[in-house]
Design a binder for these strands. Structure first.
Ligand SMILES: [Zn+2]
Ligand SMILES: [Zn+2]
Ligand SMILES: [Zn+2]
Ligand SMILES: [Zn+2]
Lengths: 130, 130
DNA sequence: AAGTTAATGTTATAATATAACACTATGTAA
DNA sequence: TTACATAGTGTTATATTATAACATTAACTT
């Protein structure tokens, strides 16, 4: 399957927090929540976030500057991400669609260029908010 | 065609600057460049940027916190944007592909939900950097 | 044991973005 | 014309997001 990464203490603390959260978490909210566990400075948070993004355990929602745990077993590499975002309640869901990822992975632009990596964010209203 | 928006002085100054720029511009770089024209404060820049994004004259590159002028006549509404980004030279190009926009506009997730708005950022190496 | 790489802890600071408030311009309607 | 509403401005202050720099420690290789 996919390579296991042994997380360090800080990485594990921060991953666990994000993983438990029902919504994307922002860096300084993470910082606030882990201060009781000894992580005191923004940089400690950002360094763990960088690593977790890099190994695909979490993703950054660019339009929100927030982070969510990956729950899509097919994307353990952080190279092809798609999300739906509710513009009212800010609920974010990772989209796992074989058709979509195939289409985007094979997309070529006018110059015939293919891209190995992409990030797609859909916006709309979730079921509850409609 | 599309509705004309009469830009205000600040909006026009800032749009002209972004439109002339060969690469995406960041807010504080814009601020620096327009200070000689009397725009002195970040908020004046951000307000103009917000409006220009809203009416589709410019787009925000979320992964870069930067802004480029729209050169895609088919997207005067800022609801469906796609870009390619070179990870070396940071060149950004707006992608104008009927196939892609049709595919994404019609994309439905597992719940059958359709999204009216999306932003897609592709990453790779541009011709020059390969 | 020595060398290498990755991670940590810490302080300071840079870069990005918004709040609040008083004021001005513009268009619309009584 | 006056009143009203809406959008934009100018300004100061502040909030939020993110990185630089440096000394130290941990983990892995040879
Ligand atoms: Zn994922
Ligand atoms: Zn919702
Ligand atoms: Zn455009
Ligand atoms: Zn390039």
């Amino acid at each position: 399957m996919h390579k296991e990464h042994n997380l360090t203490k800080n990485q594990q603390i921060i991953f666990d927090l994000i993983d438990k959260s029902p919504e994307p978490m922002k860096a300084y909210s993470i910082l606030f929540n882990v201060q009781k566990k000894g992580i005191k400075a923004p940089l400690q948070v950002y360094r763990a976030l960088d690593k977790l993004v890099q190994i695909g355990k979490i993703h950054k929602i660019e339009s929100r500057n927030a982070f969510i745990a990956c729950h899509n077993s097919s994307c353990q590499v952080a190279k092809a991400t798609a999300f739906s975002i509710c513009e009212i309640c800010e609920k974010v869901t990772e989209i796992s669609s074989a058709g979509l990822s195939k289409y985007l992975a094979n997309f070529k632009d006018k110059d015939g260029m293919k891209y190995s990596k992409y990030n797609l964010e859909f916006f709309g209203l979730c079921k509850k908010c409609r």
